[in-house]
Design a protein around this nucleic acid. Structure first.
Length: 243
DNA sequence: AATTGTTGCAACCGCTGTCAT
DNA sequence: GATGACAGCGGTTGCAACAAT
């Protein structure tokens, strides 16, 4: 174990720290994070430096709201890969796994809840029963499905185990598990695909700002073009690629 | 205008996989 | 082949901003 030199800093990054990190990444590349953490003099862990870089400082990052096209792609890819956020993120140039993860947890859950409400105000089956029970009574966990889905991002189990109520606060106020949400979203995917034609292409090669440095070859989305071609070819034929 | 509830986002933690020794 | 160090990933938390009452 290394002795911690001073104290390892945590919490929000200052502008100065950002600048330091940018400079050192510029110098040493975005791989040796422990090394960068040390030589930079930032009292941060390598992990923390990497996170900051990947999620905030990376020059290719696209900020702002998800476009409808991106939203749809997230749906599609999540349907295929589940919570493989980093993998999904590679298909959305300029978006980070963290961003997509956050987006999923907020927007999608909200949408699913709305859908649920509008579809079945008093629908009995998977909705109310599993939902409220799950979030409030841990003994009914997974009773409905009998499975612990990997879609349970921070679902009831965690909150129950940790005695937290944030899940309920955030989206589980109706006790709506990620499993349920996912079922809903799965159902909605076909229609979503219908409207996914040419626009999908536009954003698969989006206007990612060209980075100040040449990170294009070795960074987050390096395989994106190639892989996304494969993806779209695989998924939708070549119809989006020809446009 | 003040209070309360909700949402969105940045950051941390723990675990796993990979690579070098 | 075993071990340790590091990078990366997914899940979770905390807090500020915003909206509703």
């Amino acid at each position: 174990m290394k002795m911690m030199q001073d104290e390892i800093r945590k919490g929000p990054w200052t502008e100065q720290e950002d600048n330091f990190l940018i400079n050192f990444v510029h110098l040493f590349g975005d791989r040796r994070w422990d090394f960068i953490a040390k030589v930079s003099g930032l009292n941060r862990t390598g992990k923390s430096c990497r996170l900051r870089w990947v999620n905030y400082l990376h020059p290719g990052l696209k900020r702002g709201k998800m476009t409808p096209q991106e939203e749809k792609l997230v749906l599609e890819l999540h349907a295929k890969w589940g919570n493989r956020w980093s993998r999904i993120a590679r298909k959305l140039p300029g978006r980070t796994d963290n961003e997509i993860k956050n987006y999923w947890r907020t927007h999608m859950r909200k949408k699913a809840q709305e859908r649920k409400r509008t579809m079945s105000p008093a629908s009995p089956s998977s909705n109310s029963s599993s939902a409220s029970n799950i979030s409030t009574v841990n003994s009914s966990l997974s009773v409905e499905t009998g499975e612990a889905s990997f879609y349970d991002t921070g679902g009831p189990e965690a909150s129950v185990l940790q005695g937290k109520s944030s899940q309920e606060v955030h989206g589980g106020e109706t006790g709506y598990s990620m499993d349920d949400i996912w079922k809903d979203i799965e159902n909605s995917i076909e229609p979503v695909c219908d409207g996914f034609s040419e626009e999908g292409c536009n954003f698969s090669c989006p206007s990612v700002v060209s980075p100040p440095w040449d990170y294009s070859a070795d960074t987050l989305w390096k395989i994106d073009e190639e892989e996304s071609k494969m993806l779209f070819t695989y998924e939708y034929g070549t119809m989006f690629l020809t446009g």
